[in-house]
Amino acid sequence: MELTWQAIAFFIFSALTLGGGFAVVTQRNIFHAALFLMLSLFGTAGLFVLLIAPFLAAVQVLVYIGAIAILVLFAIMLTRRLMGLTISLNQQWPAAALAMLVLFGVLLLVLTPVGDDILGQNWSANLPTDGDTAPEVTYITVREIGVAFSTQNGFVLPFEIVSLLLTSALIGAIVVAREDEAI
C-alpha cells in the first residue's frame, strides 16, 4: 500500500479514534474522559468521510458529539463528588486487560494477511485486500437512505420501530430521572 493522502488521513483519524478511546478508559478525571470520548468520536467521523459516508459523518458530530456527549457531561455535573477520585479502575482490571489483549490478538490473526500466514488458514481471503477494487459510489447517499427508510421494500418497519424506541426511551428516562417519582 503506497502512502497516499488518503492513507495519511486514515492513519491520523485512526490515531484520534484509538488514542481518544484509550484515554476514555484510563483517564482518572471523568470530565476529561468525556472530552476524550468526543475526540474519539470525531476521529470516527473522519473515518466515515474517508469511507464516503458523509451523511453519517455529519450525523456522528451532530448526534454523538452534539447530543449524547452533552447528555453525559450533564450527568457528570449532576453527580458530584467525582473530582477527588484517585482510583478509577477496579481490582479486576489486570484480568480484563489480559482478556481484551487476547481477544484483540485473535481478531488480528483472523483479520490481517500476516495472521493468515501464521495460521496457515486463509480467513481473510474473502475480504477485498486491495481497496482499489472497492467500487465507486455514484449516487447521492442521503437520498438513497431516505428511499430506504420510506419504501416497503426497504426499512419502513424498522424506521417506525426506531421512533417507538426513541419515544419509550424518552418516557422511561423522564419517569426514572424525575425527583418526585418514587423509585
Binding site: P54, A58, V59, V61, G66, A69, I70
Partner: peptide, 18 residues
C-alpha cells in the same frame, strides 16, 4: 459544495455547545 451542506451547517454549529 458538499452534498450534505445544510447538515454540515447544523453539525458544526453544535460544536459551540461543547
Amino acid at each position: 459544495d458538499l452534498s450534505i451542506g445544510a447538515l454540515y451547517f447544523v453539525s458544526v454549529g453544535s460544536l459551540t455547545t461543547i
